[in-house]
């Protein structure tokens, strides 16, 4: 028995070491990227990272929490708008705007979450969709404050972060830090309870978990990280448009999570890379992007509902579980 468990512990430790090694390698690659790639690809990489962070923040509640987060783009857009408005209207210093924008998203997440967590599943999603659409409508109509459908352009950003390389480095550093934090959150006791609620809400409630409170916390955390992604979007693109918080964007991000695999941590990042890549590079050949996305999505749901990473990770995971099981015996 002890032999089995010690070998399991050894394997776990070596796996952990492998993971650390892979992370370090990824960070080094990210840092070196601008030296090798032409400007356009650096911009593209930054966009992928921003969208990946956005998708990962959605996956926090969607994949790990099992919450039907139908309108996540609202928090993304709220962060972006808060950032842009603080710089253009309030003339706030950059660091303050960077700090406040995700907090605005988190507060919005708290407000929307507090209303929605009273409901579950489809009702939760639909109410969230309606509240989100309300926010979109206000942003879209409020010409004097948000610029209406023109959005906000000419956002004053210091040269150091508005250049392609500068924006990339800022994005890369922030995204890596955020991913690390989210990874810690998912594997914290809170994250475990969150996943327990996803797997079986009745049992979780029976052992004394306050489901609504945890879902509300999850919502606020996810909104916070989505807000950070929104800020980074402004840094990379230099503009904000109300389309950022339209409901179709939310569904597109869900497609990214689905594509990568929503029971995996890095799946949404992979999905974001694939979708953003396809959109950017098919754009040169055809304007029928929505047809392509629709067909990909149909094929995914029909034949690959676990996602790409889900397909790879799942068998490995079940093997681990199996050995853990025998180890216990």
């Amino acid at each position: 028995m002890s032999e089995a468990s010690s070998s399991l512990a050894y394997r776990l430790r070596s796996l952990r070491r492998l993971e650390t090694f892979a992370c370090l390698a990824a960070v080094i690659v990210l840092l070196l990227l601008p030296f090798v790639l032409p400007d356009f690809y650096v911009y593209f990489a930054a966009l992928v990272l921003v969208t990946g962070l956005f998708a990962t923040s959605l996956n926090l509640v969607l994949g790990y929490g099992g919450m039907y987060q139908f309108h996540h783009a609202v928090f993304y857009g709220a962060g972006a708008y808060a950032f842009a408005l603080m710089l253009t209207k309030a003339h706030a210093p950059l660091w303050l705007a960077c700090l406040c924008a995700p907090l605005v998203s988190a507060v919005l997440g708290f407000l929307i979450g507090a209303i929605c967590v009273r409901l579950s599943k489809l009702y939760f999603g639909m109410l969230q969709l309606s509240l989100g659409s309300l926010v979109w409508a206000i942003v879209y109509r409020w010409y004097s404050f948000t610029g209406g459908d023109n959005g906000i352009n000419e956002i004053p950003l210091p040269n150091a972060i508005s250049s392609t390389t500068g924006a990339y480095y800022l994005t890369a550093v922030v995204v890596v830090v955020c991913l690390f934090l989210m990874y810690r959150i998912v594997n914290s006791p809170f994250g475990k309870i969150f996943q327990a609620i996803r797997d079986n809400p009745q049992r979780s409630e029976a052992i004394g978990v306050n489901i609504r409170l945890h879902q509300l916390k999850g919502e606020v955390i996810a909104a916070f990280f989505a807000g950070i992604a929104g800020v980074l979007y402004v840094v990379v693109e230099g503009t904000v448009v109300p389309d950022m918080l339209f409901w179709t964007v939310s569904l597109e991000v869900m497609v990214m999570c689905l594509l990568g695999g929503w029971y995996t941590f890095l799946g949404p990042l992979l999905g974001a890379a694939v979708i953003v890549g396809l959109r950017t590079f098919t754009g040169a050949y055809t304007e029928h992007w929505s047809l392509i996305l629709g067909i990909i999505l149909m094929a995914l749901i029909l034949w690959l509902p676990e996602g790409v990473l889900g397909l790879i990770v799942k068998p490995a995971n079940s093997k681990m579980e199996l050995s853990a099981e025998t180890g216990r015996k």
Partner: peptide, 27 residues
């Protein structure tokens, strides 16, 4: 083929249908 799937999948599938219909209208 999809009636046994959960609502999230059905929602996303019909979203895919909407994307395709939109593009068909465009064409």
């Amino acid at each position: 083929r999809l009636y046994e799937r959960d609502h999230l999948m059905l929602l996303l599938f019909t979203f895919a249908l909407a994307l395709v219909f939109n593009d068909v209208v465009n064409i």
